[in-house]
Design a binder for these strands. Sequence first.
DNA 1: TAAATCGTGTCAGGGTTTTGTCAAAGTACT
DNA 2: AGTACTTTGACAAAACCCTGACACGATTTA
Lengths: 226, 226
Amino acid sequence: MTLILVVEDSEDLAFGLRNNLEFEGYEVLVAGDGKTGLELATQKQPDLIILDLTLPELDGLEVLEHLRSAGNKVPVLVLTARHEEIDKVRGLKLGADDYVTKPFGLMELLARVEALLRRTTGLEARHLIQIGEVQIDVDARTVTKSGERVDLAPRELDLLLALIEHQGKVVSRQELLTDVWGHSGQVVTRTVDTHIAELRRKLEPDPAKPRYIQTARKAGYRFELT
Amino acid sequence: MTLILVVEDSEDLAFGLRNNLEFEGYEVLVAGDGKTGLELATQKQPDLIILDLTLPELDGLEVLEHLRSAGNKVPVLVLTARHEEIDKVRGLKLGADDYVTKPFGLMELLARVEALLRRTTGLEARHLIQIGEVQIDVDARTVTKSGERVDLAPRELDLLLALIEHQGKVVSRQELLTDVWGHSGQVVTRTVDTHIAELRRKLEPDPAKPRYIQTARKAGYRFELT
DNA sequence: TAAATCGTGTCAGGGTTTTGTCAAAGTACT
DNA sequence: AGTACTTTGACAAAACCCTGACACGATTTA
C-alpha cells in the first residue's frame, strides 16, 4: 500500500485531499502544521508528501529543508498560492519534485501524484528499453525484436547494455572489457569483436551494414539509431 | 550543449521561448507544427521537448503518442491552455513528464525545464563542436556537414581536432606530426599534406578554395572560418 | 623577364593495420 | 557427460595510411 502524507493547515482542503486520495486507493496521513508534518515524515516514512508552503509552526520550505538535509529523499509535491512564483522556484531548487499552484483541480493533482510516484518509485515495475524495433526488459533480461523473442547469451546482453548505457558515444574495447568482463589492464583479444558480431547477427536487420551497433575504427563501438 | 525542441505554432510565443532559452545557454530548435515537430524530435534527438498541445497538422498528444510508441524517452514538457484539464491528464498518462498551463511566467517555465533536465540526467551531456556548417561530436567521433554525416578516417578526425584545438592559429607540420602521429624528431613527409587534402575534399564547400582549412605557406595550416 | 627553385596540391598503388568471421578448443552449468 | 556459452587464434576482407612522383603556382634568382 502506498502511503501519502498531506501537510496542509486548511482543514477543508486537507479533508478533501484525504478523501480523494483514499478513494484512489492510497493510504493517507494528514498533518495540520509543519512540525508534526516533519515528525510524521520521519516516523512513518511515507512514499510521497504533499506539502503546503504556508503553514503554522514551521513553513513548508523549512520542512523541505529539514527533510533534505536529513538525507530524506521522499518525493515531495508542493502546494503553493499563485503569487508565490519566486518561492516556487526556490522550492524546486531545494529539491521539491513537483508543485501545483492553488487553486488546482483535483484531477490535476491526482495525475501529478501518480506521475510523481511512477517517476520516483519506479512503481511501473518493468524497466523497458525500446530502441527501434528492439526492446529490452532489463529486469527479466529478455530481448525482443519486432515482437519476436531473441535469445541473447548473458555476455551478449551485458555487452548490449554497456553499449546502450553510453548511447551515441564510442565505447572502447578496453572500457567494454573492464565494464562487462571485469578485466583490468591491457589485454589483446578478439573477444569483444566476436560478441559484437554475434549481437549484430541477432539484432541487425542487415548485419553487414549495422544500423545500431556501429564500428568506430581505432576507437571502439558505438550504439546509435541511425 | 543541451538541445531543446520547442513545438509551438504561435510564432510570438515560439520566438520568446527561443530567446529566453538561448539566453540560458540552451541550443534551441523550433517547429511550427506537430508533423515537423515529430520529425525534428526523431532526427535531432533533442534533450528535452517543450510541446504545445494545440497544434496544426498533428496535435500535441498525437505527437507524444508517436514518440513514446517509438520508444523515444526524451523528457517532454507540455504547454496547455487552462481549460484543457482533461487533456492534461491524458497527457500525463501518456508519458509527459511535466506540464505548464498558459499563461505561464517565464521564471516558472525555466525552473521547470531545469528541474526536468536535472531529473533525467541519465542522458550524458554531449561535447559538440560547431563550426560553420560542420559539427563534430567528439565522444561519438562523428562529423556532420550541414546535417549530413561525413565519414572521416581516424587519422583525419584526429588531425581535424588538432587543428581546431589551435583554432585561428597556424600549426606547423612538425607539431601536427608530434600531436597526431606521435612522431618525434625531424621527419620529412607529405603525409600531413595528404590528409589535409582529404579533409578538404570531405569538408570544404570548394576544396580548391578552402574556407576552413587554410594553408600558411612555409609555416603550416590554420583552421579558421573565413 | 625568364628561368630556376621551392612549397604545396594531388593522385594512385601497395604495404599495413584493423576489423570481420569462423571453427575449434576451453569452460561452466546441469 | 552433455549442452550452451565463451574465448582464442588464424585467416580473410576491408579500410586506411604512407610513399613517391608529378603538377602547378608562387617566389626567388639570374
